[in-house]
């Protein structure tokens, strides 16, 4: 209030319009220069930094948006890949199960064949053993029979053979040996 009063009093003497309006043109010019100077300073030092920050911020936002889109696309791709892998895994699992069943079947068949061969071999060995045992028993029986016959012959000859036929036997043996 004091300031305005002072300005009114100062300009009442000059009587010009600016004074009538209460505007001090010198002060106005100073203020204009100061404003321009301020604008120049801001334009020189503040606005570039501020714009740069804003641009950077905008760029970060754009990057984040792009990254988000990329991540979404990657997630979709991953889901697709996952589904494909799952399908592949299911197919492989089915194949593995089928192969395992086939192999199990083959193993069972092979085992049956092996068991059959082993059984046949054991039976053949048993037959051979029995054959050998029978042959050995037959030979032993024959040998024992021969022994018995020889012993019986010795006993009989020992009893029935006398001196006279023995001398004839000796004479014949000597004659044959000449």
């Amino acid at each position: 209030m004091t300031f305005y009063t002072t300005v009114a009093e100062a300009t009442s003497g000059s009587g010009d319009l600016l004074s009538a309006l209460g505007i001090n043109w010198q002060l106005l010019i100073i203020q204009i220069v100061a404003f321009l100077l301020l604008v120049a300073l801001l334009g020189r030092f503040v606005y570039p930094w501020l714009m740069k920050s804003v641009d950077q911020r905008q760029k970060d936002i754009e990057d984040a948006k792009n990254a988000s889109i990329e991540a979404q696309r990657a997630a979709q791709q991953s889901q697709k890949d996952g589904e494909a892998l799952l399908d592949e895994a299911r197919r492989e699992a089915t194949d593995i199960v089928a192969t395992a069943k086939q192999e199990a079947s083959d193993i069972v068949s092979t085992s049956e064949e092996k068991s059959r061969l082993v059984a046949e071999r054991i039976a053949k060995e048993a037959r051979d053993d029995i054959g050998r045992d029978v042959e050995a028993a037959r030979k032993q029986l024959r040998a024992e029979t021969l022994e018995l016959v020889a012993l019986a012959t010795e006993k009989v000859v020992g009893k029935v053979h006398t001196k006279k036929p023995d001398e004839a036997l000796i004479a014949e043996a000597l004659k044959e040996s000449k």
Partner: peptide, 13 residues
């Protein structure tokens, strides 16, 4: 021999 030898048998031998 199984029996003792006679003179004739000895002669042969």
């Amino acid at each position: 021999t199984a029996f003792s030898l006679s003179a004739e048998t000895k002669k042969h031998i």
